[in-house]
Design a protein around this nucleic acid. Structure first.
Lengths: 211, 211
DNA sequence: CTTGAATGAGACATGAATGTCTCACATGGG
DNA sequence: CCCATGTGAGACATTCATGTCTCATTCAAG
């Protein structure tokens, strides 16, 4: 009798399949169950034994994404210190899972009628609370609603993951690009009021990566 | 002989079908050809006569999106005045087509292997040039690459369209939310003062790393 | 060695969307 | 009036992903 074969081996395999599926579906969201199985190194039958159908697989990936988001949220300590720093910590923690997030983000749009997993609403609420905290402390501007900022964070994470996958952004710049744009925006803090006037010194101390 | 029946009526119908398809596929990206036809008020046969297959329809929608993006880009005069104002004009012009853009943006990820329509690269280049101009004039910060800013703009437009569709953001706030977040970021430009007051002397070097 | 369980390979049926076809009808021009 | 064109309705075959099934094989425990 498999006194531990089921409780241990299955769980390990299941996690490995889940990771492989996430890595594949991130790149090709329309991958076949056959391709998913092949990517995981198992047969389609075994895949179907662990996840009863594509829907169950996507749900499991959703649960994985939710769990990892909550873990990142936990590790980021969103209630400690300046809200801006908390946002930085959060993005840095979520970064490794951004591709999966992007996949789930686009997949959620297909769940149009069906009920949304409550895990997302909890995460949304926690992130929105972080932005709300920053607004209350006077650190963040108040003309952008927390709900929009949360949605924008998801959008920037998805865009960043996509840009990295396309090779338009270096992977190591991901966190910096996302956090700096989200927190500081593209406008220069001390930008000249009229750029038509004699231009300031072109301050090239920072790295210049564009072509 | 249909001396004008083909040149005029067909064109009008085709445009109407295209708009209906855009409106429907925006909400339900997996809509059937049958649903698309019904939404346009025509039969599936007629739809298939005008667009030989779903692929052709998506391509036509892509061409429509490209044309509207270029028209918006043209109307926004990206080379006139402060780059920040040009970005505002651009977002305001693109706003009506943001849902279509979001659809195409997510659809492009399925064109994995196939070649990307050159129209997008032209638009990408023009938008990147706008950001580059802002950087050259000292108006924009230079540690965020124009390619990333372009991608981020797409992401924010898609997120904004999605947030509006979900009811999380009021439609009339769309342009403000997107432009203000993109240009100014979420951080308040100054200490507890009016969030809309222009930044004057916030010279924090924002180099602080994660704790 | 024997046995049971999990696996891989593959056949098979199902359902859905698509593409193609025919035919009847309406309408507008000659 | 007659005819041509566009259209709607629907039947039909095709393709593809999916879900289910069987069977042989492998592997580890007893």
């Amino acid at each position: 009798m498999s006194h531990m074969g089921y409780g241990c081996l299955m769980a390990v395999d299941r996690d490995h399949v889940l990771r492989s599926a996430a890595a594949l579906l991130t790149r090709k969201s329309t991958a076949t169950m056959d391709e998913v199985a092949k990517a995981a190194g198992i047969s389609r039958a075994t895949l179907h034994r662990q996840f009863a159908g594509r829907d169950a697989l996507v749900r499991a990936l959703e649960a994985l994404g939710i769990a990892e988001c909550e873990a990142a949220l936990e590790a980021a300590r969103p209630d400690d210190g300046p809200a801006g720093d908390a946002v930085r910590r959060l993005v840095a923690r979520i970064e490794p899972h951004a591709p999966l997030l992007a996949f789930l983000y686009s997949e959620n749009q297909l769940f149009e009628g069906e009920e949304l997993n409550e895990g997302w609403t909890r995460i949304d609420e926690r992130i929105a609370a972080l932005f709300r905290r920053g607004q209350s402390s006077g650190e963040f501007r108040i003309d952008l609603t927390p709900a929009w900022l949360t949605e924008a964070l998801y959008g920037l994470l998805a865009s960043g993951a996509w840009a990295v996958a396309e090779g338009r952004v270096a992977p190591r710049d991901f966190t910096h690009m996302v956090t700096e744009l989200l927190l500081g925006g593209v406008r220069r803090p001390d930008a000249p009021a009229h750029p038509d006037t004699p231009a300031r010194r072109t301050d090239d101390r920072e790295r210049r990566a564009d072509a």
